Computed example of a mutant assay.
Amino acid sequence: MSTAWLVTGARGQLGHDLLEVLARRPDDDVTALGRAELDLTNEAAVRKTVRHWLDEVRADRAVLLNAAAYTAVDDAETDEATAQLVNGAAPGWLAQEMAGAGRLVHVSTDYVFDGTATEPYPVDAPTAPRSAYGRTKAAGERAVAAAGGDATTVRTAWVYGHHGGNFVATMMRLEADRPTVSVVTDQVGSPTWSLDLAAGLVALGARAESAPPVLHLTNTGAASWWDLARAVFEERGADPERVLPTSTDAFPRPAPRPAYSVLDTTAWTAAGLPAPRPWRAALAEALRSW
């Protein structure tokens, strides 16, 4: 069965890796749209673009992977209106256009939770965002759910990859440039390689059966940012003792960061999707191929 794919946010970190995974499916048709090709603040343009794509689909099925987002977490505190259009309203427009015409896989975030948990968040945990970014992403989840159709929201967290700025890339640069680096120990999550995330999202999009409306996908296990930084140093053959512990209070930011971001992935595997691997194994492969 052939599939036509539309990838939004195709020039971003996750979008790059989605295109890499989809390139392994030579019988499928892939349309990639970045910010230059699709303005997610323009409702008429979004709807027209999706309708035109659906009209042109000649495959057996159509899948839209929405990897586009307003991800400038701190900027969103003073630009919530724009973040709300991109993160909150646009996913609903996409879902409405796809309802009855194909499948939507929409990517969301751990920031929809308040970060006060002490054990992994299940998919049905109450959302309680503490930042503008989190509020707008939660609004997007609600918009997708309200549209109905074959749509799944996939929450993820702590994503890093070969493209764009991210924590792992920053630690690699600082390892080369500085004798020591201070990293917070009081924020805990599941570091997630964007290529593993992309492979999982494509598997979800390609499956014949519909999926639950909300799923979580990260690499497994938990680490603090300090743990992750030390692991990066170790994988590069550097002394992890050069990574010094500090607290969130030492790095005040406009948007509050969740103290605990570990997501429970059991619903993902229960749905028959490929089990995610441990974060440290993914990091090792990511750094080997960087």
Rank of each mutant, 00 (worst) to 15 (best):
T152K: 07
T185W: 06
E175C: 11
T153N: 07
H216L: 08
S224D: 05
L22M: 02
L197M: 12
V30D: 13
G140D: 11
R11S: 15
A83H: 03
A36K: 15
G164Q: 04
R35P: 12
W225S: 00
A69H: 09
F233P: 00
A23P: 03
E241P: 01
R51D: 15
V202N: 11
T31W: 04
S182W: 00
T8Y: 13
M1R: 11
W193K: 13
G9N: 14
R47N: 04
Q84K: 10
L6V: 12
D60P: 05
P212I: 08
A139G: 14
E43P: 04
V262P: 07
V21W: 03
T170I: 00
T78H: 04
R236I: 00
A208Y: 07
Q84G: 11
W158I: 01
P245C: 02
S108K: 10
W193C: 14
F251S: 03
P91V: 07
E97I: 09
E37Y: 12
A223M: 02
H216N: 15
P274I: 08
W93A: 11
P240I: 00
E119H: 09
L6I: 10
T266G: 07
A83V: 03
P240R: 00
T265Y: 12
K137H: 09
W268C: 08
L94T: 13
H106S: 10
P179R: 07
H216R: 13
Y160P: 01
A89W: 10
G100P: 09
A271V: 12
P240G: 01
P126H: 10
M1Q: 10
R230T: 08
P258F: 02
T265W: 13
G12T: 03
L65E: 01
V183Y: 00
T248M: 07
W193V: 11
E37S: 14
A90G: 14
A255F: 09
D110E: 14
G134E: 09
R173F: 03
P245A: 01
S108D: 07
E175T: 05
W53V: 03
E37H: 09
Q187N: 08
T8A: 06
A145L: 06
G140M: 07
A45I: 11
R58P: 08
Q84R: 15
D39T: 15
A222Y: 02
A132F: 04
A157E: 06
A132C: 04
V107S: 02
L19E: 13
E241V: 02
K48M: 09
L38I: 11
Q84P: 02
T8Q: 13
D264L: 08
R173K: 10
R155D: 05
F233R: 00
G9Y: 14
T248R: 12
L287Q: 05
D39P: 09
H163F: 12
L228P: 00
A128C: 14
T185Q: 15
R25E: 14
T246E: 04
G164R: 04
P245E: 02
P179V: 08
A271D: 12
G12D: 10
A255P: 07
